[in-house]
Design a protein around this nucleic acid. Structure first.
Ligand SMILES: [Zn+2]
Ligand SMILES: [Zn+2]
Ligand SMILES: [Zn+2]
Ligand SMILES: [Zn+2]
Lengths: 137, 137
DNA sequence: CGCTTCATGACAATCATTCTCAAATGAAAT
DNA sequence: ATTTCATTTGAGAATGATTGTCATGAAGCG
């Protein structure tokens, strides 16, 4: 039931660099941030290239992508290839991967009960992690 | 536990017009669309004003807002004031309101189990409605 | 090595959303 | 009704992430 549609893509230095930058990062990063990371590491990669690769990788399921509150797309190479969701800290960006079979089934069921097919879903949970909870007013 | 923070806001012709346009609409509409709707109805309202009011209304829980696949914010005056989610048709925009206590609890629980507080969540389900499913390959 | 095809990069173009700030308006006080 | 003052509006500029363009560079291949 897990779907990766690994498109036929040609390996390049840039792609490898992006993948590595993504592997090093522990939190979700935006295309712009990845681009900056590479730049500051002396790796010169075009911004458009970063966008294109990140999107392709996301499409192929190699990386996860979520939308921040202000609409920015952020990517991350997750620990597991299996379908999962995240609990993200609004304060520091810490992201925990979680699975939710119950939610998966619910989405499918509720949609089907209303006659919908080809169902997809988006589930994101955010809050303040333990550390960030301490410094609240 | 349901939160509306009805801000002290001053009633204006524009606000009323926007609220009405929203009430008439059956699907989710973007700020731009609402603005166009008003314009074509002879109601002249500044685009910035539409954005401002829509956001304020969303903040106060008067209307629902979701993000489309391409990052556009779309609003709708829903049937119920209670917390709920949607199953939206990718083909025609038809939106069904659904509740999911199980999901609500799951989000809260899984976040808490990882030490998160002030938890919020986003749950959107989309697919093809019965009608739109017919014309697929 | 030549050839074909895909990827890259610099930069222009999009486009939803936000910002600016002077003018208009609501509400309350006089 | 008129003054007063904070809020809201509107027209247009500004922002900023993402996408498009297209000439150049690199991969794959015989
Ligand atoms: Zn945190
Ligand atoms: Zn899921
Ligand atoms: Zn439909
Ligand atoms: Zn919910």
């Amino acid at each position: 039931m897990s779907g990766q549609a690994r498109t036929e893509r040609r390996p390049t230095r840039q792609r490898a660099a992006i993948a590595e930058a993504l592997a090093d990062a522990t939190e979700f990063r935006s295309a712009q941030e990845i681009h900056a990371d590479l730049a500051s590491a002396g790796d010169r990669v075009g911004l458009a290239t970063v966008y294109r690769n990140l999107q392709a990788m996301a499409t192929d399921g190699e990386v996860d992508v979520i939308r921040t509150a202000d609409g920015e797309s952020v990517y991350r190479a997750c620990a597991t290839e299996d379908h999962h969701h995240h609990v993200v800290c609004r304060g520091c960006g810490l992201a925990v991967e979680v699975t939710a079979d119950a939610v998966e089934r619910w989405a499918e069921t509720v949609a089907a009960s209303h006659g919908f097919t080809q169902v997809r879903h988006t589930v994101e949970v955010d809050g303040l992690c333990r550390r960030c909870s301490s410094g609240s007013s």
